[in-house]
Design a protein around this nucleic acid. Structure first.
Lengths: 230, 230
DNA sequence: CGCTCGTTTGAGAGGTCTCAATTTGGGTGG
DNA sequence: CCACCCAAATTGAGACCTCTCAAACGAGCG
């Protein structure tokens, strides 16, 4: 029920924990857990009160909402982001469920400890604020894209960001196409057709590999004003 | 360029400021402004860096995004919420524009002061965190509704929340129908048709007054699982 | 080698939007 | 106080996007 001493330096280096006092940090690690999960493991369920703040140390997490058996992916988080921070802070029911997309390692800090700590440790509070603000802006962007872009445009923008992030014009899908489709707010069928439609704007796709053959043309189509500002 | 002494008690009582130190509060008020705006006044524009954190002391604010001349309302904030907090915290471009819906009074705190203060004042940081988390959850709910509900269902849920908030089965629209439609992610035409469709589920509408004649039936239609949890 | 599950393709239905015309309602000035 | 005017709201018709349902295809794995 506590993080091993050997592993604390890794965690200590994360932005969220970097500036907090040694004392608070030690106390927090003492009651936290660093745990590994296999792929597709359910971590939390929508509607429950948050027991832990989760930090993605390694892997990838799918945050999704459910209704009538349907799922929609709200966000996908990678190291070293947190998830369900807002629910922890407010001690209110979680608005989304979470599961691992790939084998992952999570740091789990008891909710009550998080709340107690940031009341006293201004540096930790600062880290929480920065993280919360980042997550907030992320959903806001998703909402804007959903509201103002067609599915093909959302896809185009996603491809552009991915290419930019990878630094090259060719990259591999980091997740199943159906998950990506859900994240982009569309069905797998629409994703597939969208991909076909983008061929004329300089995108080719072979299996899980996507290649942007004509970035300028793709940008012209995507009008990436929205996704750009992060 | 500073809030008058006589007005500080009002502000001091707000959740965001209630627990901060007297010293920080006084210093902050000294460089902040309390300002009145007429209806439909532009307050901030998407894409700009935030100069001030805004607190809605009185009135109502429309937060919207623009693209190709089209607007979509992302959120509507009432006293005593803040807006563009995330952009202020991260000192990054604002993701949305803001304008007053009705004559409003806003407290404007210079961004830099906000950032400096919450680094040192844990109680203020706590307030910021709570506010940020609340806004975050709010957008998350909007996104979930957009993704998983039909426009009529979104409308039904909104009516149910409004009725619940007012404590009665009858209430007046607090804003233009077109704005409400935009907030709910639909066109004015769809709003109008949606309203007609809801008549069979126990909703009548005369002018700006909406009456829920059969709450049970409306809830059955709306399946308010999503909007409920605030 | 044959499953199984994800992906693609096809056909069709449905929801929402656009454009246009009409009606309603609120505000202003005579 | 009333008539007018403008903007908002409603109604209608049609198009478009996206979804649903079904079937075919393909890749990975036992």
């Amino acid at each position: 029920m506590s993080v091993r001493l050997a592993e604390t330096p890794l965690i200590r280096a994360l932005p969220l924990f970097k500036e907090m006092s040694e004392r608070s940090f030690a106390a927090m690690m003492d009651v936290s857990m660093l745990q590994r999960f296999p792929a597709r493991a359910d971590i939390i369920r929508e509607g429950e009160l948050p027991d832990f703040l989760h930090v993605v140390v390694e892997g990838a997490i799918d945050l999704f909402a459910t209704r009538d058996g349907e799922e929609t992916t709200i966000d996908i988080v990678y190291p070293v982001s947190t998830f369900i921070l807002a629910a922890v802070v407010r001690d209110e029911p979680q608005l989304k469920s979470a599961r691992t997309l790939v084998p992952s390692q999570l740091l789990m800090v008891p909710s009550q400890v998080v709340r107690d700590t940031f009341k006293h440790d201004a540096a930790f509070a600062h880290g929480i604020v920065a993280e919360l603000a980042a997550r907030y802006r992320s959903v806001t962007r998703v909402l804007k894209n959903d509201r103002m872009l067609s599915s093909a445009e959302r896809l185009a923008n996603w491809i552009l960001s991915s290419a930019r992030r990878s630094g090259r014009n060719e990259f591999d899908l980091p997740l199943e196409k159906r998950k990506l489709a859900s994240y982009l707010g569309m069905t797998p069928e629409s994703y597939s057709r969208g991909m076909t439609a983008l061929e004329q704007y300089g995108v080719t796709s072979h299996g899980a590999t996507i290649t942007v053959t004509d970035p300028a043309r793709l940008m012209e189509f995507a009008k990436p004003a929205l996704a750009a500002d992060d």
